[in-house]
Amino acid sequence: MRTSLPMLTRTSTAWAEYTPVTHDYARVKGRTENELLALDRPVFVVRPGFIQPCHCITSRTRIYRYLCSWSAWLFPVLERLAPKYVTTTERLGRAMVALAKHGDEQRLLRSDGINRVAG
């Protein structure tokens, strides 16, 4: 993965948790993250937990639309009970832009780090 842009900042996004069924995916993802982190340029791995869609973002997949509409009430509860595991699409986008512009001392950010960087 060589590029002619030496100041390029790379971000990688992955799920925060895995089940035994996704063991192969987790193994490949882990190897990919390690290779990205070994590059000689700023690399940030972003692992959001529960993501609340904002600004009328809807999925084209029927089951996801149903789950989002059903769980809309759950976000405020989760944000109060477990704030380090939830974020929004807006915060995720702002955090990725901030990481590309200014970087951060942490190279692996979960939802709480995403929310901190997003401001």
Rank of each mutant, 00 (worst) to 15 (best):
L92D: 01
I63T: 09
P83Y: 07
R107E: 10
L99R: 06
V97T: 04
L108M: 14
V77R: 05
P53N: 02
H102S: 11
P53A: 02
W70I: 10
G103M: 10
R80M: 12
S59Y: 07
R65Y: 08
C56R: 13
Y85P: 00
L78H: 05
I63N: 13
R60Y: 10
P53F: 01
F50Y: 14
Q52K: 13
R94D: 03
V86S: 03
T87K: 01
S69P: 02
C68E: 12
F75V: 02
G93H: 04
P53Y: 04
R62Y: 11
T88S: 03
R94Y: 01
S59W: 09
V86L: 07
F50K: 02
R94F: 02
T61K: 14
R65C: 06
M96Q: 08
L81S: 10
W73L: 12
L74I: 12
R107M: 09
Y64W: 10
R60W: 11
S69D: 14
C56H: 12
E105P: 02
C68Y: 12
S71W: 02
D104Q: 07
L108N: 07
F75T: 02
F75W: 09
Y64M: 07
R60L: 11
R107I: 05
L108R: 13
K84R: 15
Y85G: 09
I57L: 15
R80C: 11
T89S: 02
R62F: 11
I51D: 00
L81T: 08
A100E: 08
A98M: 07
V86C: 13
L99S: 04
G103S: 11
R60P: 04
A95M: 01
R107W: 11
T87M: 04
Q52E: 14
H55T: 01
Y64F: 10
V97R: 05
L92C: 05
T87A: 04
A98N: 12
E105F: 10
F50D: 05
T58H: 05
A98T: 01
W73K: 08
R94C: 05
T88P: 00
G103Y: 06
L74W: 12
G103Q: 10
G93V: 02
Q106M: 12
R65D: 05
V77Y: 11
V77C: 06
P76Y: 06
R107F: 06
F50P: 01
L67R: 12
L92V: 05
C54D: 04
K101D: 15
P76V: 06
G49N: 07
I63Y: 11
V77N: 06
T61P: 01
Q106N: 15
A98K: 13
S59G: 06
S69A: 15
I51G: 00
E105G: 09
I63E: 15
Y85L: 11
F50S: 03
S59K: 05
E90A: 04
P83N: 06
M96A: 02
I51H: 01
A82F: 11
F75P: 00
L78N: 05
A72G: 05
F50N: 03
P76H: 03
W70C: 08
Y85F: 13
R60K: 15
P53C: 03
P53S: 04
Y64V: 04
